[in-house]
């Protein structure tokens, strides 16, 4: 790996651009996707097929004043949206898009990603708390309990993967799965027959972790108005939205690397970054698809799902995998 100072910087700029484009255009994709599912057209007016809509929205948000209501904690209120955005951006530094496209290969990159994901949750907590709004405070409380419940099955599932590959480096994990879809962790039935289920568990958890519907209790517009974002306008709101989409992208990248073989082609042909992008966009589309299909869960039902179904299943999977590794 090249250790010159320019390489990470160039890569970072590239990833920033990638992240920025994703944050803007995932919103467009979501609106178009929702429109098609609901048999509407979605945005059509600004540019061809509404392609310039994100730009227009961004301009509108930026031209607005960031209102800081009286009675809020000024510093936290301003910091929270930035805090929602930064960890997601930082995460891209360690994600390997292909064998040679990675800003920095960190040995404990899996751990780093989860640490950063927890900071994103802190942003919601702080934003909700600092707003001094009752809806926002309820939302913050919900968000914390939800994240606590979901990180356990998520981490247990990751431990399973780490046990199989024997590394906590995302690059190594992806390399370990090269050579066709039968090598992917999702189909690693020789390691543990429950791997497809742990893929589903991990995917559900990553949706819950990013506060996406049907697990968007923190936002819950019909109950909590807009949850932690109630008091935010202009780019404060914009950053939260971008942070949400970026977290989605990071989640999709993680799922791809941990379970779907990273940049590997299903049939062993032309592995490369395009396979990686294809996989994450399929996953992102699924997330959007899920959001526009289901009603919202209720917070306690969600905790039930986590504690009664996801955690037992992931623990069983962990034990089975450990047994398989020990025996074979």
């Amino acid at each position: 790996m090249d250790t010159s100072i320019w390489r990470p910087i160039l890569y970072l700029i590239g990833f920033m651009a990638f992240a920025g484009l994703n944050a803007a255009y995932l919103g467009w994709c979501e609106r178009k996707g929702a429109g098609r599912i609901q048999r509407r057209t979605g945005p059509m007016e600004v540019g061809f097929q509404g392609l310039l809509q994100p730009l227009a929205d961004g301009l509108k948000l930026m031209s607005k004043q960031l209102l800081v209501p009286t009675g809020v904690d000024g510093i936290l209120f301003r910091v929270a949206p930035i805090l929602a955005m930064i960890p997601a951006l930082t995460s891209f530094a360690v994600i390997p898009f292909a064998g040679n496209i990675q800003a920095r290969s960190v040995e404990l990159s899996v751990l780093l990603l989860f640490a950063l994901a927890s900071i994103a949750m802190m942003a919601i907590l702080l934003g909700g708390w600092a707003s001094g709004n009752k809806y926002a405070v309820i939302s913050a409380a919900r968000s914390v309990s939800q994240n606590l419940a979901y990180e356990i099955p998520m981490l247990v599932t990751v431990i399973t993967v780490v046990m199989i590959t024997g590394s906590m480096n995302l690059q190594d994990i992806a390399v370990h799965q090269q050579g066709g879809f039968w090598h992917w962790n999702i189909f690693a039935l020789n390691k543990s027959i429950l791997m497809p289920i742990s893929f589903i568990i991990f995917f559900i958890c990553s949706i819950a972790e990013t506060n996406r519907a049907p697990f968007d209790m923190a936002e819950a517009e019909s109950e909590l108005v807009a949850g932690f974002m109630t008091e935010y306008g202009s780019m404060g709101f914009g950053l939260f939205m971008m942070g949400e989409y970026l977290n989605m992208v990071v989640g999709a990248c993680l799922v791809t690397i941990l379970f779907l073989g990273g940049w590997d082609c299903p049939f062993g042909l032309f592995p490369g970054v395009w396979w990686f992008l294809l996989k994450i966009y399929i996953l992102l589309f699924t997330v959007i698809w899920v959001r526009w299909t289901f009603p919202r869960t209720q917070i306690y039902k969600l905790l039930n799902l986590s504690w009664k179904i996801l955690i037992p299943f992931s623990l069983v999977n962990l034990l089975v995998t450990a047994a398989f590794i020990k025996i074979f």
Binding site: G33, G35, R36, I37, Q38, R39, R40, T41, M44, W289, V290, W292, T293, F294
Partner: peptide
Amino acid sequence: SLLIGLSITAREFFKPVVTEQ
């Protein structure tokens, strides 16, 4: 039931739009 729901919205995805512009 979740899969059934997803299949219905997927089918709708490919149908023509019904709204009036």
